[in-house]
């Protein structure tokens, strides 16, 4: 029995719920080549190409060097895509190989199952986001200036909410998918366009008014601006509004996840 097991038991965490969370976390922690190395490499490339090579040509945006401007967006991109991918893959792979039956035939409540998948997936998003942040601190700090964390509470709150939101969307994806191609499609045709039009690489102020208004329909804009506010203390969208919108969205999708599990959508015949 590990120290963590003992702490969970003494904190009164239900054993069934704790076991599922532990199983889900161990699955990705034991496979860093699949879970942590790819975002590390990808972000070294992003920082190198967009920050170092092209950054000097772009100059400053909203008063900060371009490489620092894109850091929050890259953190959001890594965090939400990993939270989404973890939840969707775990659910779908379990359905595909039918080992999700081990969970479904257990006495865990449906809400307990959903929260276990959510928290473990959100944690993966937070871990990857932290990894990218540390990478940013090292690269930007070494080449330009130290990376500030102007609003740490906002940063933590946004990281938790956005990873939870995308983990909950990932559960829907994992339940709806009928093939591995469906998961790839969701990533390529939904997640990536949202990210690239989500003010990760540019300022909303650089857009014409119509496109700026349309951009406000993209939840990624609120996420990127929220995390940017956490790091830099500046944002183009009110951070409290962003937090409220994202929290509301997360609550709705988590409710949907639980309803789908109760109904057995994609899980039972």
């Amino acid at each position: 029995m590990s120290v963590v097991d003992r702490m969970a038991a003494s904190a009164g965490v239900p054993t069934g719920f704790y076991t599922l969370v532990k199983r889900e976390i161990l699955r990705y922690v034991r496979r860093p080549r699949n879970t942590f190395v790819p975002p590390f490499i990808t972000n070294v490339l992003y920082f190198s190409v967009f920050g170092v090579v092209l950054g000097d040509r772009v100059g400053e945006i909203i008063g900060v060097p371009y490489i620092l401007f894109i850091l929050p967006g890259l953190v959001v991109l890594g965090a939400v895509s990993n939270a989404f991918e973890n939840a969707s893959f775990s659910i779908f792979h379990g359905r595909w190989n039918e080992y999700i039956d081990e969970t479904l035939t257990s006495p865990l409540s449906y809400a307990g199952m959903v929260w276990a998948y959510l928290l473990s997936s959100a944690l993966r998003g937070v871990l990857v986001g932290t990894l990218i942040s540390v990478l940013g601190v090292v690269i930007i700090g070494g080449l330009y200036q130290s990376v500030p964390v102007a609003q740490p509470l906002f940063l933590v709150a946004f990281m938790l909410v956005i990873t939870l939101l995308f983990a909950s969307l990932g559960i829907v994806g994992g339940l709806v998918a009928e093939d591995f191609d469906d998961l790839t499609m969701m990533n390529q045709f939904l997640l990536r366009p949202l990210v690239f039009f989500g003010a990760v690489f540019y300022s909303l102020g650089d857009l014409p008014p119509l496109l700026r208004d349309i951009s406000l329909l993209n939840p990624m804009v609120y996420m990127v601006n929220g995390v940017r506010y956490g790091f830099l203390g500046v944002a183009e969208v009110d951070p409290l509004t962003s937090l409220a919108v994202l929290s509301g969205g997360a609550a709705v999708v988590v409710g949907l996840d639980i309803a789908l599990f109760k109904r057995g959508y994609g899980l039972t015949d």
């Binding site: 590990s2 054993t15 532990k22 199983r23 039918e98 080992y99 081990e102 257990s106």
Partner: peptide, 29 residues
Amino acid sequence: APQEFNVDRFFPIREVLEHKAGYHGIPAH
């Protein structure tokens, strides 16, 4: 004990059993 081999492929079988026991509320030790 079903007909299908619906078993978690990610973990050694002892851990798969520990997980199943845990889902049923049996403490880790």
